[in-house]
Each structure stands twice: as structure tokens, then as C-alpha cells.
């Protein structure tokens, strides 16, 4: 067990587990900054996981899978299409809550339930299966092998050979940070999220800004979803989002809805998941082990709230 923890494989397993949560955390952060709690992340990820498989298989049909290049083209086709559809789902969600004025939590629950049942239905219709998409020949995201660095021991083994989407998720943190804090659109998003009236008083359409934020949120969530079925695993299985959307909501909130804060907390959850994976080799009952990531979320949120309360109390008593 200890050997397992101090291995390169363990670090890789953390990164694998962090990637989908990280995408979803960024998705949650951008929505939260615009003043919306995007609880529909879970459903968005699940739908995208299925679409990822379908679209990349479609890409495989068009470009073939014979050479590395055609494989990459198939993946690229599937990925872009999935992200596009993710943006569309974000748009539909935005339409429901911003235009039709549905309650954002209820709309999210509806979307999550649609995703949960809808994915199985689509899978059944397309592949004739109810549990997994093993008969569909999808194309996974490629691994990035860095030629020279790869041969450096330990560090090279970690840096080289990671999934392209893992790198993309880290890039997403930087991009979202710059986007939210350095660009006019980011400033508008933050202003709308904090004080809608103030933003509208200077002629910013709060609704438009929230639409944009939710479309971006949907796109980021779909990247996380794509990774689940085209990186973490190589097929779609039912309910494969497994609460990651909700974990990401917690991660984002604990990171004060900032990209960098969310990144750090996501890694924490990635570690929890990786530890759980490792412990499956032990004799501890599976069900207990599978509890670990969720327990971490609960404990994490508890500690976060406690620390905040304590800080306040400390300030209160220091006269």
C-alpha cells in the first residue's frame, strides 16, 4: 500500500482522477462568478460522456483509425462536437432559468434526471445495450508523449505520457483565471454575479452575460464528460459521472469560486479518488472504499465551514 503511494503510477492516478473534476470545477466557478449555481454539471457531464463516445466513433467512421493522424482527427472531431453540444446544453439550461424563469435548482435536477435516463435510452437505441458502450468503437483522447523528457526518471515519467485532456484541464485553469480577472468579459461576469443591478445600471445586460457564462460552463463540463469515456475509461457506462458534478460544485465553492482555488481543491479530491482506487487492492470491502471521495467532499466542506466559523469567532473575541 505504502509502496503504491510513493510510486509514479500513484501520481498518474491522481492526475487521472483530478482531470474530470477539474474541468467541472472550472465550469462551476465561471457559473458561480456570474451568480448562478450550476447544479446541472452532473447531467451535463453524463450526457457529454455518452456523446463523446458516439461522436468520436462517428469521427472514426469518417477519418478511419488506421494511422495515428486519422485517429487524432477522429478524436478531434468527436471532442469538438461534444464540446459544441455541451455549449448547447448550457444554452438550453440558460434558456430555462433565464428566459423561462425556472428555478435554477429545479431545472438542474430535471436536466440531471433527463441525462440519467436519456443516456441509457440513447445507448439502447444506438448500441442495443443498457449498461455500457463496449460495442461502439470510440476513439479515446491521445496521450502526449514528450520525446526527450520522457526518458528522465520519475519526473519524465509523470510529465510524459499524460492524456492530452489532462494537460488541457490544467490549461483551462490558466485560461479561466485570465478570462475572469483580466478581460472585460470576465469583469462583466464578476460584476453581474456580485451585483446585478450595478451591472445593469451601466448598460450591461445581466441576462446576456449569464447566458455566456452558462454556455462556457456547459462547454467546460462537457470536456470533463468527454474525458470520462475517452480517457479515464474507453467506453461509456451508465451513471459514469458518479457524482463528480456535485463534487466539483463543492470544490469550486471551497476554492472561493476562483480558478486557482478550485484547482487546488480539485487535486485534493483527485488524491481521495486515487487512494480509493489503490485501496481496492486491499481486503477492505469495496463499498466502503467507494465511499472515500464522497466522504472527503463531506469532510472537506465541514472543515471549510468550520474554519470560516472559527475565523469569525476569533475575530469576535479579540476586542
Amino acid at each position: 500500500m505504502l509502496n503504491g503511494i510513493f510510486s509514479v503510477e500513484f501520481v498518474n492516478s491522481i492526475l487521472r482522477a483530478t482531470t474530470p473534476i477539474l474541468f467541472a470545477t472550472m465550469a462551476s466557478a465561471v457559473a458561480a462568478k456570474a451568480g448562478i449555481c450550476n447544479m446541472a454539471l452532473e447531467g451535463m457531464m453524463l450526457l457529454s460522456a455518452l456523446f463523446g463516445v458516439l461522436f468520436s466513433a462517428m469521427g472514426g467512421g469518417i477519418f478511419g483509425t488506421a494511422s495515428g493522424l486519422s485517429q487524432f482527427a477522429s478524436f478531434g472531431f468527436g471532442f469538438l462536437l461534444t464540446v459544441l453540444v455541451g455549449g448547447l446544453i448550457g444554452l438550453i439550461f440558460a434558456f430555462c432559468i433565464l428566459h423561462m424563469k425556472a428555478d435554477e435548482i429545479l431545472a438542474a435536477i430535471a436536466l440531471n434526471l433527463i441525462a440519467s435516463g436519456g443516456t441509457v435510452m440513447i445507448l439502447m437505441a444506438v448500441a442495443g445495450e443498457k449498461g455500457a458502450s463496449s460495442t461502439i468503437a470510440s476513439v479515446a483522447a491521445p496521450k502526449v508523449v514528450i520525446p526527450l523528457i520522457g526518458s528522465i526518471p520519475v519526473l519524465g515519467e509523470i510529465l510524459s505520457g499524460q492524456n492530452l485532456l489532462t494537460w488541457l484541464s490544467i490549461l483551462a485553469v490558466i485560461v479561466m483565471h485570465v478570462f475572469l480577472y483580466k478581460t472585460p468579459m470576465g469583469l462583466k461576469i464578476r460584476a453581474v454575479g456580485e451585483n446585478k443591478n450595478a451591472a445593469e445600471s451601466v448598460g450591461i445586460s445581466a441576462r446576456k452575460i449569464q447566458y455566456i457564462a452558462l454556455v462556457i460552463s456547459g462547454m467546460l463540463a462537457s470536456m470533463g464528460g468527454f474525458y470520462l469515456s475517452g480517457g479515464y475509461m474507453n467506453m461509456f457506462t451508465r451513471e459514469m459521472a458518479a457524482g463528480r458534478g456535485y463534487i466539483a460544485l463543492a470544490a469550486s465553492s471551497m476554492g472561493a469560486d476562483t480558478p486557482v482555488g478550485g484547482f487546488l481543491v480539485s487535486i485534493l479530491f483527485g488524491i481521495a479518488q486515487a487512494v480509493a482506487n489503490l485501496m481496492q487492492l486491499t481486503t477492505i470491502p469495496m463499498q466502503l472504499i467507494q465511499l472515500i471521495p464522497y466522504l472527503t467532499t463531506l469532510i472537506g466542506l465541514g472543515i471549510y465551514s468550520y474554519a470560516r466559523m472559527k475565523r469569525r469567532k476569533k475575530l469576535l473575541s479579540s476586542e
Binding site: 472585460p184 469583469l187 462583466k188 451585483n195 443591478n197 450595478a198 451591472a199 445593469e200 451601466v202
Partner: peptide, 17 residues
């Protein structure tokens, strides 16, 4: 109609940065 966590300058240029 001001956004408290932003600076004075940011509030002034908000929307026309």
C-alpha cells in the same frame, strides 16, 4: 449601483473597459 469587491476604477470603466 456599485460592485463592492471591485475597485473604484473598475466600477467606473465597467462595461466600457
Amino acid at each position: 449601483m456599485l460592485v463592492s469587491s471591485l475597485t473604484v476604477a473598475e466600477n467606473i470603466i465597467l462595461g466600457v473597459a
